[in-house]
Each structure stands twice: as structure tokens, then as C-alpha cells.
Amino acid sequence: MRKISLALILGLALGGGLVTMDATDAATPGARQSVDETRHASRHADIEVYNVAGSVRVIGWDRAEVQVTGTLGRGTEGLEFDSDEDDVYIEVEVPSGGRRGEQQFDQVYGSDLEIRVPERANVEIDSLSASVEVIGVDGEITITTVRGGVIVDGSPRELNVNTGSGDLAIEAGAGTREIELISGSGSVELNAEGSEVSVETVGGDITVVGLGLLDTSLGSTAGSIHFTGDLVGTNDYDFESFHGGITVILPADVSAVIDASSFAGGIQNDFGFEPRSSERGKVGKRLDFEVGGGEADVFIKTFSGSIEIRKS
């Protein structure tokens, strides 16, 4: 019995190599090859996807199968699609030399993939410029795309996203435990519930609406930070931007110690405590106060931005 299934897996893995097109197709100018392939996979499979440009859309479904549909860019060499039950590998293959710096890079190599995966699968997606969308996947999700935007909607167990310039729009449900987002100039919009959150950008603005978030850290060099949400227990909530303004909107009955400082900007506070000059030196504003039971730690710091602490 076992021998048979092994043989099957072997057959799948070895035979499942290059599935779509041969060299002559690839060489045909302007031809965009379409793809429609399905492989069996376990419901907890680890799925890796590589697509250099174009788009990747991943959708969770209630089947122990992975299905790839879409079209491949005319400069690509085909699709590799392997599955051995627990591991699924999907790669749009591109020529190894001379693909950088080419004009119309995205038009030549851009491939649009729609991939259906078991909803509890772990998904890892890497790309240079593809936009990425992941919907209804509950496993761990890791996305890296240098220039593409990212949309995630679902309750991934853990979510890691890295982009250079793409904007991020993330809706994470209550099942998500950890969210880590890194972006350069792209903006980040996040709605999340009950998870730990870490967001870091260079220039991108950060907007987070949280329900019962645990330890949360939002940081930027030049982007603004806008946080709306309640605070839970003794968790830490850090908001730091060098140039950007920081707005933190909290429930009126929040229980926290709040420490806010701005070197060159002003501080507005709805909770009724007045800022004072920084105690250590002579410059800068600092506001340090306790509300409710003083449980959560809130730390707000900006160099030249202004700070608003408001009641929701």
C-alpha cells in the first residue's frame, strides 16, 4: 500500500516538472500561454509561489487540492508546479540572463496567476513586481514583493509581508496571532483583531484599526502613524516616527500609562494632562500620565511630527 503511494508521489513530483510549454512556444513573440493545472495536496500543505512580475491571487478553498489558472508572460519559460502532498511548489520560470534592466520588464515577464489552495495551507509568495492578493487562507502567510501592492483578507495564523514600494491593505480576523509588515515607501492600512502587530515603514503612512490587539509596534521614518483601538492588559503599544505625525485614538475608559514625547512638534491630549518640557534636557515636549488602572504601556515618540492623543 505504502509502496504504491510512494510511487505515486514520485511520479507526481518527477513528472510534474515543467508542465506547460516548450521552448518554441516561449520564443513566439506576443504569445501568452494560459495555464490550468490541478494537483492534490494535503490540507496543511506548505505552498511556495514565485512569480517575478504581474499578479498573484491566492484563494483558500475547502478542497485538498491546489489549482493554478491564469496566463504566463510571453518572455517566460513555463510554469513549474510540483506537489508531494505536504509541499507544493509553483514557479513561473524566466530566462536566467538579461532580464534585469530591460524595457517593459513587466509586460514581457508579467504573469497573472490565480491559485486556489486548501484554506489551512501555509503560503509563501515571492516576487519582484507582482501585486499579490491572498484571500481566505488560515495558515501562515509570507509575502515578499519589491514593487507590488499587497492585499490580504482572512485570518492567517501568522502574516509576514515585505515590500519596497507597494501599498499594503490588510484585513486580518480574530484567528491571526502575529502580524509583521515592512514597507519602504508604500503605505500600510491594517485592520486586525487580537494579534501581535509590528509595522515598519520608511516613508509610507501607517493606519491601523485594532480590536484587542496585543503587543503592538508601529514605526516609520517619515510616514505618519494613525492608530485607533482599545488596549489589552499590560501589553506594550509603541508608536514612533521621526518626521511623521502620530495620532492615537483610545477608548475614554482605557487603562494605561502613556508616555509621549516630541522633540520639535506639539502634543495634543484629550485626556486632560498638559505636556511639559522634556525633563532630561531643555528642549522638546513630553507628556507622561496614567489613566484608568494604568495597565497597558503606551509609548509615543516623534522627532519633528506632532502628537495627538484622542478619545474615541
Binding site: L10, A13, E85, D86, D87
Partner: peptide
């Protein structure tokens, strides 16, 4: 283990 080429490791797994 997840990041490795475990796909291949699985193939040699046998009872």
C-alpha cells in the same frame, strides 16, 4: 525544515 528542500526528503521517507 520547512524552508529546506524537504520535498525531496519526504520522497525517501519509508517504513
Amino acid at each position: 525544515r520547512r524552508s529546506q528542500g524537504k520535498r525531496w526528503a519526504k520522497l525517501v521517507m519509508t517504513d
